[in-house]
Amino acid sequence: MERIEEIKKVIEEKMNKVNSLEELNDLKVLFLGKKGLITEVQGMIKEIPNDSKKEFGMKVNEVRTLFNTIYEEIKNKLEEEKINKKLKEEAIDITLPSEKIETGSIHPFNRIIMEVEDLFVSMGYDVVDGNEIETDEYCFKRLNVPDGHPARDSQDTFYITEEYLLRTQTSTAQAHTMEENKEKGPIRIICPGKVYRRDDDATHSHQFGQVEGLVVDKDISLADLKGTLEIFAKRLLGENTKVRFRPSYFPFTEPSVEVDLSCFKCGGKGCALCKQTGWIEVLGAGMVHPNVLRMGGYDPEVYTGFAFGTGLDRLAMFKYNIPDIRYLYTNDVRFLKEFDRKDEE
């Protein structure tokens, strides 16, 4: 019995000095190993008289529990210290630069095309891709612009031969689509793409983008055109955008309209962008001229249609606040990299 009390003392004494898990383990061997102190005392039970055996057994268990409790306590403490040390060692400066997982950028011109495509596809329009090398026939004659027509003046053309040219307008898609629609049924298309005119200055580029829209069906009216362009304008420049029609002239539409949108910058109050008018001229549009319908094989007594066209570069410039059309074609990577995120919904 005295031996047990002695062991208790030794436990308290030794355990208090433990500094590492290794030492702790050694102590476990010292007390509970095959020849451990507690194991040894436990073996003495044979020599204990029967009436004291029960008491002796309890005492041994008591000392064993005592050891285990202290052991667990110290082990937990040491393990926690160890992991804390490891965490400290692994400390980093999270403000250091990252490994550059770089994405690229999508050109603003193509962003606008995709946006316009998505909008019109959702309204049931097919996107057609017209040829950029065209004939005089499809670029002018079939759009009611015969030889010598004064409207040719405003479109200084790059000719390749007397017959072939670089299209000056995506309206060429009108003539092709009507001709290729063999059933002469309803049409709903847009044609975005590049066009070319002999013109180069701060506000003009000899190459620029246009999107043409064409709807042909029974009972299409100017009011339908306006309703459609209102949706277009709101989607592109914001919900508060207003649409204004002004009469105009294009050989391939009659009546023709210039379409002004309320200035997205000042909201229509007047600013430098809209030259204090509150309006920006954005699209040309109108009801498809009966001659154009007829040349496309449609009976103008049965079918009517509307067409509209607008400059993609200007839309991109408006949307992204780009001051000069030439920036779109210069491709300074610092410019390009500004377009590296998703557009707002």
Partner: peptide, 15 residues
């Protein structure tokens, strides 16, 4: 002239 919602059949455009 007031804009109006065009009355043509619903279909999915192709791109």
């Amino acid at each position: 002239i007031k804009g109006r919602d065009i009355n043509i059949p619903v279909k999915r455009g192709h791109v």
